[in-house]
């Protein structure tokens, strides 16, 4: 019986490669899935993205020399798969390039805005109280609206704990680019949180603040 399985199934070496890959990938599956969700913003797209990432990974993991590099390697593949899909959908990152204008987000500071608007006059934890206004789905909605060019480095560093240098390698851009995109992304995120809070009447703002 064992012999029959060997003859009819995948060749032994291929099966062994698959098992090795399955073991190496197991500790990173949840994180990788989370990355796909934040990239795609939609669960069905994220599931496709994850599967395609694993299929590509399975095909080429023999070329990965150092098993310790598994996690960034998987995130790199996921990024590439996502970029390929964006391209074929004609929704290139070019669509967001106009936002590369340094003045696009102005000098908005959420920290200062909360101090100035003072939505919690009796609080001694003003900023924490502001963050507590947001449910998880509110945070996700605002975060998902950050332009992809800026969102990618934010996801990698803030959610997945990669250093800027690791993020630069995954995204294939220079370190300086990651730093400036991180700052711009954070600006968009902060402005988005404030707008969301005002629009959804989570905070009351003074009449002349418009």
């Amino acid at each position: 019986m064992e012999m029959a399985a060997t003859m009819q199934g995948a060749p032994r070496a291929e099966r062994r490669g698959r098992d090795v890959f399955a073991d190496l990938v197991a500790p990173h599956l949840d994180g990788l899935y989370g990355y796909c969700v934040r990239l795609a913003n939609r669960v069905p797209d994220a599931e496709d993205l994850l599967q395609e990432t694993l299929v590509r990974g399975l095909r080429s993991h023999g070329r990965l020399r150092d098993a310790d590099r598994m996690r960034p390697w998987l995130f790199t593949i996921a990024t590439n798969v996502w970029r390929d899909r964006q391209r074929t959908r004609g929704r290139e990152e070019a669509a967001t390039v106009s936002l590369d204008d340094p003045q696009a987000e102005g000098d908005f500071s959420l920290f200062s805005t909360v101090v100035t608007e003072d939505p919690f006059p009796y609080s001694d934890e003003l900023h924490l109280d502001f963050l507590r206004l947001f449910h998880d789905e509110d945070v996700r909605a605002v975060f998902g609206a950050v332009s992809p060019v800026y969102r990618l480095p934010l996801i990698l560093t803030t959610i997945h704990g990669f250093s800027c240098k690791e993020a630069a390698a995954i995204l294939k851009v220079p370190l300086g680019t990651v730093l400036s995109r991180l700052h711009r992304g954070r600006r968009q995120l902060e402005a988005g949180l404030w707008d969301y809070a005002v629009k959804n009447a989570l905070v009351k703002v003074s009449d002349d603040a418009d």
């Binding site: 500071s109 900023h127 963050l131 789905e137 945070v139 996700r140 975060f143 803030t158 902060e190």
Partner: peptide, 19 residues
């Protein structure tokens, strides 16, 4: 203060953005 708030905001994003 802003650095402390950055830490808090990042933690909030990480918490909400984990699936």
């Amino acid at each position: 203060g802003e650095l402390e708030f950055s830490r808090q905001l990042r933690a909030r994003v990480a918490e909400a953005g984990t699936d």
